[in-house]
Simulated assay, not measured.
Amino acid sequence: MDKVQLDKSVNHHIALSAIMIKRVFYKILNENNLNITPEQWSILYYLSESANLTVSELAELTFKDFANISRITHKLEKAGLIKKQKHSTDKRISIFFITDTGTKLVNHVHKCAYKSTNISMQGIEPQEREIILRSLKLILINTNNYLK
């Protein structure tokens, strides 16, 4: 029988690291009195990089399901950070874009995300970071392909 040893499991350490990275990010956001979650931040980030995204595009970019994207975008819209409009030719499709208020918040959160990254990457050399990033991207591709 194949048996996983958690102390030697890459998946387990990735999961634990993700939890801790998120906790650090939450703490930094709270220290800066920014009332936003990491999930909301990811939506705002993508809308600030590529204006006018649909629910399905946001879901694909963030690896979240439609229900979660709808819940998050509703909260962001209610807070005045994003706006929703209907597609010009297909009224069933909603398109989201970031507001000026949302853009200002993104600029503040970028600093927090940068600080969070620096905390989690302490002692890791730039070439090691590249290897980690390349490996994590491959893990995302592998797991996403399995789930399709």
Rank of each mutant, 00 (worst) to 15 (best):
P38D: 10
Q85H: 06
W41Y: 13
G123I: 02
A15H: 01
V4W: 00
H12W: 10
V4S: 02
A67H: 11
L58V: 05
H87D: 15
L44M: 15
L76S: 05
F63C: 09
G80E: 08
V4R: 01
L136I: 04
M121Y: 01
P38G: 14
E31T: 12
N11R: 07
K83D: 09
D2G: 10
I82L: 14
I93W: 08
L147W: 04
L6G: 04
F96K: 09
W41S: 05
K27M: 01
S9F: 02
N30F: 02
T101N: 13
T117Q: 00
T62I: 14
L81D: 07
Y146H: 01
F96G: 01
E31C: 09
I36P: 00
V4F: 01
F66I: 14
M1S: 13
Q5D: 14
Q5H: 06
S48E: 10
V4D: 02
L34H: 06
T117H: 01
K104L: 03
G102K: 06
L53R: 01
L105S: 07
I82Y: 00
K91D: 08
T89V: 15
L29T: 01
N142K: 14
V55F: 09
M20D: 13
S48V: 12
L58A: 04
L81G: 05
T143Y: 03
S42M: 15
K148V: 08
G123W: 01
S17Q: 12
Q127C: 07
T99R: 09
F25C: 14
V109W: 04
Q40S: 07
N118H: 06
T103Y: 03
Y114R: 12
Q85L: 12
I139C: 14
Y46C: 13
H74K: 13
E49A: 14
K91T: 11
L47A: 11
V24P: 08
L34T: 13
Y45E: 04
G102I: 09
E125T: 05
D7F: 03
L61R: 15
L29N: 08
D65V: 02
P126K: 08
K75Q: 14
H87N: 10
A18H: 13
L44N: 10
V10K: 12
L58W: 01
S56W: 07
H13M: 05
S116E: 00
E57D: 13
I21P: 00
N11L: 12
H13D: 08
I95D: 09
L147S: 06
S42G: 07
L147I: 05
M121S: 00
L34N: 09
I95R: 02
A113C: 07
G123N: 03
C112Q: 12
I28K: 04
N118F: 00
Q5A: 11
D65P: 02
A67S: 15
N11H: 06
I124A: 10
D2W: 12
N142I: 14
D90F: 00
L6V: 09
Y146N: 11
F66Y: 08
T99C: 04
T117M: 03
L136T: 00
V55S: 13
A67D: 12
A113V: 11
Q122N: 02
V109M: 05
I141N: 12
L29H: 06
S70N: 15
S116Q: 05
I19W: 06
E128A: 03
